[in-house]
């Protein structure tokens, strides 16, 4: 049996997590104060994923950039590739907060690019 140590990123508390496994089989998770921690450790062991925020160029607004987020996490080793794909998008004002700008980024189910603020016309 071996152990993996993680710091939970589900909330600002940052619980130190310990995951015990036998090969691919998870035996135990400890150190978490809530269920999200256990879920995070299992996910991190089997298929680590992250979401991120970035911006896309917007035309016709007072600001040069529209902030966006991913609606679902991408595999950790594809973050930079996903960021580059988001940066290819071009949008035009007006935009409403919550508007979906692209669906299933990199062919990943549910990884939509969502506007995180409204920007009217300049």
């Amino acid at each position: 049996m071996s152990t993996e140590n993680y710091v939970c990123i589900a909330c600002p508390i940052g619980c130190p997590l310990e995951l015990v496994h036998e090969g691919d089989q998870i035996v135990d998770v400890s150190g978490n104060k809530c269920v999200r921690g256990a879920k995070y450790a299992r996910q991190e062991f089997t298929d680590p994923r992250r979401t991120f925020s970035t911006t896309v160029p917007i035309e016709g607004s007072n600001w040069a950039r529209l902030p966006v987020k991913l609606a679902a996490p991408v595999p950790k080793d594809r973050i930079l590739e996903a960021a580059q794909a988001v940066h290819q998008l071009r949008v035009q004002a007006p935009i409403r907060m919550g508007e979906v700008l692209a669906r299933d980024l990199l062919g990943l189910d549910g990884v939509n690019v969502v506007a995180t603020r409204s920007l009217g016309r300049a």
Partner: peptide, 22 residues
Amino acid sequence: CIHAGFGLQYFREELTGPEYAE
């Protein structure tokens, strides 16, 4: 502050800065 991490206590969900402001 376009990153997420806002509103966990007040809105009980994780928002980005612009979403919290809006």
